[in-house]
């Protein structure tokens, strides 16, 4: 029982990481109908900016955090302008390739600028964790879980209760209709990219103290987050969260009770089963083409 509780906590912890990155996927997908293969690199770049500010320059943690987020705003905007926007009228394939090109570019530019050493970034809290009975709770994982809950709440409020959120939603559902209604579609898409770059950045900064800061950190998480997105359904942010958590838990328990070497396979096996038997994801999204 102790072990099950501990595994559950670890699974939820790593699952929250997947969920955070998955939210970025979903947002961009809903607004533009493309999968952003550079989403993981957003996380990586943000973590490196954090290292530069907080470790190398010795700035306070909160200030570094704000600087890194500001950096992500710039990167999200540039990404939209250079990688997505010129291709907006083409099919999803060129866009996918373009985002793949961007991910290669971001990863290797970071490598060229910062070098290959993995870096340490300390967590937000000084205490590494707390022991509750038989279960040890890592403070950084607690923070990640907390932030995930907060972001879900924020997301709900933002999209359902604010005008700009509603405009964003309208854009993601039907761009033509939105522009007829006088919504500045281009600006909305720009906003979506910035917001999802921010989300990716927050995820990267939060997980850095656990997984360390390395060039590869983004791509490994992103692939899992992508799987989480499918499990949850591409159409829904809540689905991404559930998908992420489910994936984390499946992986952790699969590793504990079935096989460690194949643990990455469970995610994909579940994924394939989902795709075959419930392609609309947990929360449902129409897959079939309109006649």
């Amino acid at each position: 029982m102790d072990i099950i509780l501990q595994l559950l906590f670890q699974g939820i912890g790593i699952g929250s990481v997947y969920a955070l990155v998955a939210m970025g996927f979903v947002l961009i997908f809903r607004a533009t109908n493309v999968v952003n293969f550079a989403q993981g690199e957003f996380s990586m770049v943000a973590a490196y900016m954090m290292v530069v500010c907080a470790v190398d320059l010795g700035l306070p943690y909160w200030l570094s955090f704000l600087i890194a987020l500001a950096g992500m705003v710039v990167i999200g905007a540039l990404f939209n302008v250079c990688v997505y926007y010129p291709l907006r009228h083409r099919t999803y394939l060129p866009v996918i390739i373009s985002t793949i090109g961007a991910s290669i570019f971001l990863a290797n530019t970071t490598l060229a600028l910062y070098g290959p050493q993995p870096q340490v970034l300390s967590g937000w809290f000084d205490t590494p964790g707390i022991q509750i009975g038989p279960v040890y709770l890592d403070s950084q994982y607690l923070l990640i879980i907390g932030v995930t809950i907060l972001l879900v709440a924020f997301q709900y409020w933002f999209f359902e209760k604010t005008l700009i959120g509603k405009k964003l939603q309208a854009t993601s559902q039907d761009k033509e209709m939105a522009s007829l209604l006088g919504i500045p579609v281009a600006a909305m898409i720009m906003l979506t990219f910035i917001y999802s770059a921010l989300l990716g950045g927050v995820a990267g900064i939060l997980v850095a103290p656990i997984l360390f800061v390395s060039i590869q950190m983004g791509s490994t998480i992103a692939l899992k987050a992508f799987a989480a997105t499918i499990i949850g359904g591409f159409g829904d942010v809540a689905g991404a969260i559930i998908g992420g958590l489910a994936l984390g838990i499946i992986e952790t328990f699969g590793a504990a009770y079935i096989s460690v070497p194949y643990k990455d396979g469970f995610a994909f096996l579940v994924l394939v089963l989902f795709l075959i038997f419930r392609p609309q994801g947990i929360f449902g999204e129409r897959v079939a083409e309109k006649a």
Binding site: C82, V83, P86, L87, P94, I97, S98, I100, G101, A102, S103, I104, F105, L106, A107, N108, T109, T110, L111, A112, G115, P116, I215
Partner: peptide, 19 residues
């Protein structure tokens, strides 16, 4: 001599060709 530089250029080339 600068690790990563040529793959970074390669990434840009891919984007430019697609564009």
């Amino acid at each position: 001599s600068i690790p990563g530089l040529y793959l970074a250029i390669y990434g840009v080339a891919v984007i430019l060709i697609v564009l």
